[in-house]
Computed example of a mutant assay.
Amino acid sequence: MPDRAYRLVVHTSVGGDRMRVRLSNAFGDRPLTFDSVYAGVQRQGAALVPGSNRRLTFDGRTTVTIPPGGTAYSDPLPGRVRARTNLVVSLHSPDAAGPATGHRLAMQTSYLTQGDHTADETAAPWTRTTTSWFYLDAVTVRTPARTGAVVALGDSITDGWESTTDLNRRWPDQLSRRLQHSRATTVRGVANAGISANKVLADGASPSALNRLDRDVLSHPGVRTVLVFEGVNDLKARTGVTAQDLIDGYREIADRVHAAGHCVVGATIAPFKGWPEWDPAAEAVRQEVNAFIRTGGLFDAVADFDRAVRSPDDPESIRPAYDNGDHLHFTDAGMRAMADEVRLKDLECASGPGR
């Protein structure tokens, strides 16, 4: 919508300096202009810590126009961003129209207003709320060369659906908490590339994992490891996807990640018995795929999320304390169980062709 401003709240993982933001017009059908972009630190709600809100530039200019399908990085912002901080990016577009590139299930309250109030550190102009992010694609910082990042490639479970809004309890967030002071790895950054309804093989509400791997995962600077937690949506769609189909999809992902010089960790598919689309045929494929993930040798390491969350009384179902009630998604406790299942030292694995 023209003349709309967005105040978007995002939670950082690793700390560092020379912060940059990446804006995206990936799904736009026309050029998109931003004439004012600021970044500050959240105080409460839409209000910012006084003095923290600073203008971002793009190639030295305060205005940037992004072509359809394109992205734009801001210039580095002097100063340091602390780890696990609620950063607020405020942006205004005079001409936004057509399809908006965004992230629907942000599990985070952000704010909207008409007119350019991006420089305002108070909450007063920001009278509307949203739980989606628009146009903001990534936040990066400069870290010591030895510090790496992991990208979580997944669906709505990774996206954090049904975790508590505004508390950053998605499993990648809980993994980030573990990483900050770990001596088992120098991986500190976490990028959440989960999208609701995402599949490995087929496009749907979002491009498939195969089709978005370059844009959403491999394009991030500092990536050392990719953690792949995908597949349940392929199974429950009842399209006849076989175990070999999924294995072939995983193999292509692993090959491309390795060719880019990164590690790849595979996560087993969690139970979903009780979800309306569950059936014994899909369960048989899930079991076969999980056996391959555990023992097939494709991945540098395995995170056995199935083992972490399944019920001891019915291994085809989620443990009741971890089940949000729909038998597919997880409570905060279930999210934590998955994060705790990741062996942090596995994120340091050797990577690349011939590993």
Rank of each mutant, 00 (worst) to 15 (best):
D29R: 13
D203S: 04
V226L: 09
W161S: 13
D29Y: 03
G51Y: 06
A26Y: 14
V200N: 04
R30P: 00
I66Y: 10
G148L: 05
D279L: 10
V41A: 02
T147C: 12
L246S: 04
A321C: 08
R215Q: 13
A5Q: 09
G16F: 02
R212P: 04
L227V: 08
L91Q: 07
A282Y: 04
G297D: 10
I318F: 09
S311P: 07
L87V: 00
S36D: 10
Q180K: 13
A284C: 15
G204N: 06
I253G: 00
T85I: 03
P280Y: 04
R84L: 02
L344Q: 01
Q108G: 01
E288C: 10
V232M: 10
T295F: 09
H92W: 08
S24G: 09
I157S: 01
V89T: 00
T57E: 04
G148K: 00
V49R: 01
G189Q: 02
A191H: 05
D216T: 03
E230P: 10
S156G: 05
I157R: 02
P315W: 04
A259H: 14
A209W: 00
G204S: 07
A291P: 09
V264W: 02
Q114L: 15
L210E: 03
Y73P: 08
G297Q: 06
Y38Q: 03
P99K: 06
S196V: 07
D166F: 04
R18Y: 15
